[in-house]
Design a protein around this nucleic acid. Sequence first.
DNA 1: CCCAACTGGTTTAAAAAGTCAAGCGGTGTG
DNA 2: CACACCGCTTGACTTTTTAAACCAGTTGGG
Lengths: 113, 113
Amino acid sequence: MSTAHPGFCPVYRAIGVLQEKWVLHIVRALLVGEKGFNELARAVGGCNSATLTQRLEHLESLALIAKRTEDSPGKLARSVYTLTPAGRELQSVIDAIDGWAREHLTAAEAAPA
Amino acid sequence: MSTAHPGFCPVYRAIGVLQEKWVLHIVRALLVGEKGFNELARAVGGCNSATLTQRLEHLESLALIAKRTEDSPGKLARSVYTLTPAGRELQSVIDAIDGWAREHLTAAEAAPA
DNA sequence: CCCAACTGGTTTAAAAAGTCAAGCGGTGTG
DNA sequence: CACACCGCTTGACTTTTTAAACCAGTTGGG
């Protein structure tokens, strides 16, 4: 009897966060290294700015990523998104997905309709 | 580089599947043991039948789960959903999420608005 | 100098996805 | 017989995601 029950189980909540569209992609991109907004959008591949903004705000509110605004005087202001230590530890999750994907989703399977 | 590029990278596709709403919950519930439709819906907690049906079809088409119809004569016909070997190996992903959640999402963090 | 392209976003409306509640055929139980 | 359960399907409604346009500022080329 440990399954279900929304509010209590941390795993349930974790899944709730990680299954939001683009979140895993964002984390994966950021695991490679910090990125600016547009740069991140490109790395993630296909996410529109509106959704991206919202996801980033959410992830920041959960303290998984941090936003830093670099405005060197005379230089173009740039927002830089980085993973926090907690966010970086999602590496294990990405690794698990990676390992699984290479074994079970390599070629076929994911065929469209 | 190696990031991005939808169709090619298995990880990208894996994320695409796993981030669909309820998928991770379904897998988690099924890792505990095979379940019937309504039973699964209850275990997952909050997913409606329409979406559940669709997810199950998708997961079955990816060969992550298998549907078996048990109709013992004189007994109520029942659909049973089971993880395939490939699906069962998602255990590692769930474990990773579980481990991460317990460390970084235990108490606070996931506060509502 | 001026235009084009880049930065990090916001806004809007339309499309897609998910949800709720009801209901259908069937079985089994009081 | 009525009512509760099974496994879904349907249709109307709400939420989420999307594309596209646009703002303000910076930098580079012609």
